[in-house]
Design a binder for these strands. Structure first.
Length: 608
DNA sequence: CTTAGGG
DNA sequence: CCCTAAG
């Protein structure tokens, strides 16, 4: 019940530590739980002052809010929040609900507060903010930063590093976001997450990208340099994580000062709460590393999520209902904790999606790039035959009741998953939890949130990571084209984002090559598109790319400007893995590999 | 159903 | 990405 904001720093993993938040930090002393921090949508000016958010940002928020209302009933909770978080919005109600359910949860903030936060600005924050930035900047060696920080619109941080590294990202395997222009950041953002962003705040962009590349929410607020998938904080090394997804906890430095944010890893629930509470800083919040999910999230909000079939080609009309919930379930809990680094929790209720869809006529097309709006109908159509959809929608809308029924059925039958992917071994436990989630989601709000919470906890207990699925709806990217034969063919190529690539690499490192389905489950549970075959193909391409490029080294290397190629670090990793796996017989099995894989990235591989 | 390969 | 052959 307590508010998260207060947070005691101990165990919570809060993901949030955003730079701007400092303001919040000042307000929220760790101890004052009672007094929640007020968050306002603001931007940090060059001189360290807070200014009201731009129209754009505000709009985003508003939109979000609106959506929220709509979704609210359906929304589950934390998971949901996360999904939404991307935009900046989430906060209010959803978290409220969630919080209640959770034991720790803190929710506490009433709607009023929410509104309050939007409206109020944090007073004292300026100073604190300022100071911290300055200090940090000062510390940062390379970047001797000009005091003034003539920064465009961005945050002070961005300014900081200008001097030393002019180049983009990838500097000997290093990715430095500090000096990128907004435009560049946008490009990188797109490459990383596969979607456009309208956000103009450099700090936000950097953090978001850093989080994405790093797969963690714990990103320093000062500098953004990513080395080999690890985020390197030059000034203070308070936080960094590796690609593996493990967060190192030791970080304290500034974070502590802020009053919150410590280690994101441990309790997911807490993190969620924080996120929720903080709501406003969504950017940061979105913890997910799966940032990939971001795009999805956006889409979700706008459009409904049609349940996504696990398999691309499946188009069974007859069983729509059953499928409808099924996929969701799978997606939601699917992966085991292990693979994912980041804690993501998106639990999305199957039922509600349709509602949204109906409501909203147009949606942003993340895929295409730049936010093009298209009539949702067309979109839908693409993914599946209209009949189905219509039927589906009706079905859903007509009632939660139905959903509930389904749920019940599921429960009763829980052991028999429909077409679940989780036939596998490990999943038994998981499956149970998975199934439960969706069910709950369907339930009425009140119950729902509670159930969700419980579900989450359950998951925790089980040790599952609920990573979720941010993307189930990904019907987005899939366009089908009728062929002469009569078959439908998938048309849109969904560009692989850096995040996805990293996940893939990580997955390979864990499971080894050739175990695509495993990898799919572990690392790509959230990406419903991307089949094991896709993973395989992508890996093939990566290998080709890595081997091709590395040797020549500098020659053509200058592709820097190419559209966000592929961070060299990743290619290196790919090579290493390739080597390893090539040498290691498959028969060793995944279990053994891990040790090797783990060390891999650091590797001393001398072979190549 | 999941992989491996070729197209 | 798609499609198909194989285990």
């Amino acid at each position: 019940m307590e508010t998260v904001v207060g947070v005691e720093g101990s165990d919570e993993g809060k993901c949030e530590e955003s730079g701007v938040e400092k303001s919040s930090s000042s307000l929220s002393s760790p101890k004052q739980i009672a007094d929640p921090v007020v968050y306002k949508l603001v931007r940090v000016e060059g001189d360290g002052r807070l200014v009201p958010a731009t129209d754009d940002e505000v709009m985003e928020v508003e939109e979000f809010l609106v959506d929220e209302k709509i979704e609210l009933p359906v929304v589950t909770d934390a998971g949901n929040v996360e999904c939404i978080s991307n935009e900046e919005s989430s906060s209010g109600k959803s978290h409220k609900e969630s919080s209640e359910g959770l034991s720790h949860s803190e929710n506490t903030e009433p709607d009023a507060k929410l509104s309050a936060r939007l409206e109020e600005i944090v007073p004292s924050s300026d100073l604190s903010l300022d100071d911290s930035h300055i200090n940090e900047s000062a510390r940062i060696g390379e970047c001797s930063k000009p005091p003034d920080g003539p920064i465009e619109s961005g945050s002070p941080a961005s300014v900081i590093c200008n001097s030393s590294k002019p180049d983009f990202y990838t500097l000997k395997g290093e990715i430095c976001l500090d000096n990128l222009s907004i435009r560049e950041l946008h490009g990188l953002f797109r490459a990383t997450f596969g979607r456009e962003t309208t956000v103009k705040d450099k700090l936000w962009l950097k953090r978001r990208i850093a989080m994405g590349l790093t797969n963690s929410c714990d990103v320093s607020t000062t500098t953004f340099t990513i080395l080999d998938n690890k985020l390197v904080n030059k000034g203070t090394d308070n936080s960094f994580q590796n690609a593996d997804g493990m967060l190192t906890e030791g970080s304290d430095g500034e974070a502590k000062n802020l009053g919150y944010e410590t280690s994101p890893t441990s309790h997911s629930s807490q993190m969620e709460n924080h996120q929720i509470v903080l709501g406003k800083r969504l950017g940061n919040l979105s913890v997910e590393l799966d940032c990939g999910s971001d795009d999805l999230q956006m889409e979700h909000r706008g459009a409904k999520r049609v349940r996504k079939p696990t398999k691309r080609y499946i188009e069974e009309l007859s069983e729509v209902e059953s499928r409808d919930y099924t996929p969701k379930v799978i997606s939601s809990a699917k992966n085991t904790g292990q693979g994912q680094t980041s804690p993501k929790y998106c639990i999305r209720p199957p039922g509600n999606a349709p509602l949204n869809e109906r409501t909203i006529v147009t949606r942003l097309d993340s895929l295409g790039g730049s936010g093009v709006q298209v009539p949702f109908v067309s979109r839908v159509r693409r993914s599946r035959p209209r009949k189905n959809i219509m039927a589906l929608m009706k079905f859903d809308s007509s009632g939660m009741g139905v959903a509930a029924k389904l749920v019940q059925e599921a429960l009763s039958v829980r052991s028999s998953p429909p077409e679940s992917e989780h036939a596998d071994k490990v999943l038994k436990v998981r499956s149970a939890s998975e199934q439960i989630q969706p069910l709950f989601a369907a339930e009425p709000e009140k119950d729902k949130r509670r159930s969700v919470m419980s579900t989450i906890e359950l998951g925790k207990n089980l040790g599952l990571k609920q990573t979720d699925s941010s993307e189930d709806n990904s019907d987005d990217g899939i366009a089908t084209v009728p062929t002469a034969k009569g078959g439908m063919r998938r048309k849109h190529h969904r560009a692989w984002t850096l995040v996805e690539v990293m996940k893939l690499v990580e997955g390979v490192s864990k499971c080894g090559t050739g175990r695509w389905s495993e990898i799919k489950r572990l690392s790509f549970a959230s990406y419903s598109y991307r089949t094991s075959v896709d993973l395989k193909d992508k890996w093939r391409n990566l290998l080709k790319a890595s081997f091709a490029q590395t040797p020549p080294d500098d020659g053509i290397n200058s592709r820097k400007h190419a559209s966000v190629p592929i961070p060299a670090a990743i290619l290196l990793k790919v090579r290493e893995l390739a080597e390893m796996h090539a040498q290691v017989p498959p028969n060793l099995g995944p279990g053994k590999l891990p040790s090797v894989s783990r060390s891999v990235h650091q590797t001393r591989s001398g072979y190549l």
